[in-house]
Write a protein that binds this DNA or RNA. Structure first.
Length: 820
RNA sequence: GCAGGAGUAGCGAAGUGGUCAAACGCACGGGACUCAAGAUCCCGUCCCUUAGUGGGUUCAGAGGUUCGAAUCCUCUCUCCUGCACCA
């Protein structure tokens, strides 16, 4: 049977669209459920099969929850600001808006073709002024609270992007968009968002994310990098100036023999100002500070440093220790490190520059001379030469020593974070303009709310990689909102990750012109119940959106702490050979191509059938073909089905199927659900009740919505199957004896066939079973399967025919068999 | 180095204390149907044995807990992912 899938798909897609089947109805009594996939960047090359997989996972869940009676919000939108569109515009001497909107159109078409049940009426596109207006609005709220600020700082610069990047966008010292481009460090005046204000809450609340994957949580913890330690104050030998150093190992304080200062620290200049070493140290530090990031984080790289000529006093023992500038000291904590013999790096560095070393910990507390050893002692052990703490285990002593240091005012217990403030300014055009005005008289001014949005100009020339806003007088020239005098606009735009930090809120009230959203609507629809997307956003987007949520809560707009209850990371779809898909390998699978070949429903069902949705999988035409055959069989079955009464066995199968498949879908074990669906299909009978077949079609339809609707209408279902009620399991109809009997027959059939294979001329088959198992063995059923006449006897049947006494062999669950 | 995850048949993948280790799919082999091929249907694919029934080995490796372990604990190996000169 040749089925025209394309026709079926178009038919139902347009019916869904016309009837607005999937639009959220507001104000009903239904409980809400918010299913969200991370919105895509609309690239010119269109959706690939990985997107299709991602969206299929969400769509199945949305359909499932909708049928279960939830008011499901399942929206889609586009992360439509970003560099590729701008670069394309430069190449094509056009406007990025054109590229972007063309790409979006194509995405929408592709997504509709996949049968995704989005509520399109809530679409957000972040390049539209009615969206980015609210980016600017949030920015101004942060600006008011001092959370958006401008400062000069060493920042990451990508020469390919021609802009600065956030720390989260630098991987291994390289740009996240250009793996071949090393990030340079530049000192520039830039806008930051003070995410560090929330560092502790972002860290501690990870505990609340019960339904987030462990690895994402671990990555976030690692990224935020909370550590408990002690600031210890070292006074300069010859002045009152205090150097504060941060350590998590204050148990080694008696071992300290020098301090190291980060080369980029402003302290360096201060320490050598006016000294005879000034020139040498400054030059050396500048060279170190300029080293590329990739170089600096290379552990193999030789430690380098230079003596500043200055000394500091260790507060606990008044020892005088030299201060070095060293490349292994980072701008973390205060940028000053106390160095000792119990750290690998410090040890190596000291050896190189002939700085004395001394141990204060050994295995057994016996004195150990660091000068006579070749390696740092990094293990835990017993303290010695450590004043009143000598003789104690160093780990046990550590908190006591911290208290002791604090009590004597030599330092203070401190918590440090690796998380840095979020650098959001970008020296590019295609992003949200930062709503700031510079006035020579009044300084930095926020754009008044009534003047929002600050729009990107449409008429603009892209001539080079330079931000075209610079020098664009109709954009830049503006009156100061305070003194009305001449002023100029900020020309930097915002990182695109700003848009994605809150877009999920806008879906709840996408068309609101008066406010960012209606609090009541948010209250009903948020938080996101399941958020589906890639693992790569672990330390970027997924931290930023948590930060935004907490900020918006603090200004009274939200009453929850976390944006997403459950996070789900889908696996990657690889090429047929298991290789990563890429243009250069030529193994990219496009959804429209395979959909044309196998039908959309086959593609969807195949994608979710080969393994748990969180696992990687390989695309396989063979696999999709197998699924296509299954779908054809289902259609064929439905066309031959006769309405009637279901057998008890079918009722058992359907109800058990409903129960198990519901559970599997709920737990996102789609692969198991598909297996059980296959099994259930295999046990449907030619004549059965409409209600039972309907249950099957409902289960089937969340995976294969087009064929599902088609079957539904053919068997006389009312309305859309997509909007029908999810089947309920009637436990009373479940009777395991049917499964037992089935297994018994299957085994017996296999045995008989094996025997027949060997004896070759058998015509009559006799099966001997235990009397209490007799009901499991239907002679008719077995005969049908083996194609021979079959007689079934209970072993205690006096009239049985058993010339070779095979009934002697019978055991529970194992019949005796005789063939002649 | 730190962190998270994983290791089950040729492959993908179920199974997370006992009732069954390997469901299901793919691949491969055999059979039925057919002039033939394809499609379809049936059977088989750890080892030994038996006309099927029977016995044994096995869940990366080694120990351990338990009456009982793929499953829990310890150590080791391998792979993936992320972070990493963070003091």
């Amino acid at each position: 049977m040749k089925i025209n899938f394309a026709k079926i798909e178009k038919k139902w897609q347009s019916k869904w669209e016309k009837s607005k089947a999937f639009e959220v109805k507001e104000g009903g009594k239904k409980e809400k459920y918010y299913v969200l996939e991370m919105y895509p960047y609309p690239s010119a090359s269109g959706l690939h099969i990985g997107h299709a997989f991602n969206y299929t996972i969400g769509d199945i869940y949305a359909r499932f929850k909708r049928m279960q009676g939830f008011n499901v919000l399942y929206p889609m939108g586009y992360d439509s600001f970003g560099l590729p569109a701008e670069n394309a515009a430069i190449r094509g001497k056009s406007h990025p808006k054109k590229f972007t909107e063309d790409a979006i159109k194509n995405y929408i078409k592709q997504q509709k073709n996949l049968g995704l049940s989005y509520d399109w009426s809530r679409m957000v596109e972040c390049h539209k002024p009615d969206f980015y207006k609210w980016d600017q609005w949030i920015f101004l709220k942060m600006f008011e609270k001092g959370l958006a600020y401008k400062k000069e700082a060493p920042v990451n610069w990508c020469s390919q992007c021609n802009t600065v990047l956030a720390n989260e966008q630098v991987k291994d010292g390289r740009c996240y968009l250009h793996e071949d481009t090393e990030v340079e460090i530049k000192h520039l005046d830039q806008w930051f968002l003070k995410i560090t204000k929330y560092a502790d809450e972002l860290y501690e609340d990870i505990e609340k994310l019960k339904d987030w994957p462990e690895d994402i949580k671990a990555m976030q913890k690692n990224w935020i990098g909370k550590s408990q330690g002690t600031d210890i104050y070292f006074k300069l030998e010859d002045s009152e100036k205090i150097l504060s150093t941060y350590t998590t190992r204050c148990d080694t304080i008696f071992s300290v023999t020098f301090l190291a200062v980060a080369p980029e620290s402003p302290l360096v200049n201060e320490l050598v100002e006016g000294s005879d070493r000034e020139k040498e140290v400054k030059e050396f530090s500048q060279r170190l500070a300029k080293e590329s990031f990739a170089d600096r984080i290379n552990e193999e790289k030789e430690k380098e440093g230079i003596f500043t000529g200055r000394y500091a006093i260790n507060p606990v023992n008044n020892e005088k220790v030299p201060i070095y500038v060293a490349n292994f000291a980072l701008m973390y904590g205060s940028g000053v490190v106390m160095c000792d013999a119990h750290d690998k790096r410090d040890f190596r560095f000291a050896r190189k520059y002939d700085i004395p070393l001394k141990f204060v910990i050994s295995e057994d507390g016996e004195e150990l001379d660091a000068m006579r050893e070749d390696y740092a002692f990094v293990n835990d052990g017993i303290l010695f030469n450590s004043g009143e703490f000598s003789g104690m285990n160093n780990r046990e002593a550590l908190p006591k020593m911290a208290n002791w240091i604090e009590k004597n005012k030599w330092g203070k217990k401190t918590i440090n974070y690796k998380l840095r403030d979020w650098l959001i300014s970008r020296q590019r055009f295609w992003g949200t303009p930062i709503p700031i005005i510079y006035c020579d008289g009044c300084g930095i001014q926020g754009v008044p709310e009534k003047d929002l949005p600050v729009k990107l100009p449409d008429n603009i020339k892209f001539t080079s990689k330079k931000n075209p806003l610079i020098g664009c007088s109709k954009f830049m020239d503006v009156k100061c909102p305070k003194c009305k005098g001449k002023a100029r606009r900020e020309t930097d735009t915002m990182d695109t990750f700003v848009n994605s930090s809150w877009y999920f809120l806008r879906y709840c009230d996408a068309k609101n012109e008066k406010a960012i959203f209606d609090k009541k609507k948010i209250k009903h629809l948020m938080p996101i119940d399941i958020y589906i997307g890639g693992r790569e956003h672990a330390t970027g987007h997924l931290i930023y959106c948590r930060f935004y949520t907490k900020f918006l809560r603090d200004i009274g707009l939200l009453d929850f702490d976390e944006p997403a209850v459950k996070l789900f990371n889908q696996g990657m779809v690889h090429g047929p050979g298991g290789e990563k898909m890429s243009k250069s390998r030529g193994n990219v699978v496009m959804p429209e191509v395979v959909s044309e070949k196998f039908g959309v429903d086959s593609v969807r069902l195949f994608l979710v059938s080969t393994g748990g949705p969180d696992k990687n999988r390989d695309w396989s035409d063979k696999g999709a073909e197998g699924i296509l055959k299954l779908i054809e069989k289902v259609i064929d079955y439905a066309s031959k089905w006769n309405a009637g009464k279901s057998s008890a066995k079918v009722e058992h199968k359907v109800n058990k199927g409903v129960k198990e498949i519901t559970e599997d879908i709920e737990n996102l074990k789609y692969n198991l659900a598909v297996i059980k669906l296959r099994g259930l299909f295999g046990s449907l009978e030619g004549e059965m009740a409409k209600k039972d077949l309907e249950s099957f079609v409902k289960l089937f339809s969340v995976f294969c919505p087009h064929v599902g609707e088609e079957l539904w209408s053919r068997i006389g279902g009312k309305g859309f199957v997509s909007l029908s009620d999810w089947p309920k399991c009637n436990e009373k109809k479940i009777n395991e004896k049917f499964d037992k009997a089935e297994k018994a027959v299957e085994r017996t059939v296999a045995d008989i066939l094996n025997i027949l294979k060997i004896v070759s001329k058998g015509e009559l088959v006799y099966v001997y079973v235990l009397p209490n198992e007799l009901e499991n063995y239907s002679a008719e059923e077995i005969a049908k399967r083996v194609g021979k006449d079959v007689n079934v006897f209970a072993v205690n049947d006096k009239k049985k025919y058993d010339p070779e006494n095979k009934s002697k062999k019978v055991k529970p669950g194992r019949p005796g068999i005789f063939v002649e």
